[in-house]
Amino acid sequence: MTTNILLCGVGGQGTLLASNLLAECAMEAGFDVKKSEIHGMAQRGGSVVSHVRFGERICSPIIRKGECDILLAFEELEALRWTEYLKPGGLVITNAQNILPMSVSAGNAVYPKNITQILAGMSVQTIAVDAIGKASELGNQKCLNVVLLGVLARRIKEVKAEIWPEMIKKMLPAKLQELNLKAFTTGWNLA
């Protein structure tokens, strides 16, 4: 059995750290793991995507269209962009945040309305959370990535619950641990 998780968002939202934590936790749980993402030009406020795959043996680091189990979207428009990767009946978790692309902020394109409803109309399960709002309540919007990781983690039965906070402690500098552990628990209990 292979589990395929696609994380998508906008450059600067912290998808990279979330996918690193996810991959390290899956490795800690004893799986073969591969992760693929594109750095470089895409970082500058563009669309970013990370493929994380774990199971007994992983060959390609890329998830096939129609084989993604969970799509973790840090931004609503990005959720819409990647739905093709979801398997029928797959799960999409979205952060209820809209970041306008330049084409929209300049008035040359329209940001689709009611994205959560569009997603609900597809043959997928959807969970929409206000991760950015929760992160703000915790005092730092930047921890939105770990809030979302908490929402995701609860749905990954293959990785024991205690591995996640241990990995956060192991991988983050001491001064960021308390905030991120809180963010993780907030996400875990959010939905």
Partner: peptide, 14 residues
Amino acid sequence: TTPKATVDIPVRPP
């Protein structure tokens, strides 16, 4: 695959 949304999805270049 899950079908793509039918709405226009604006691109997000860097």
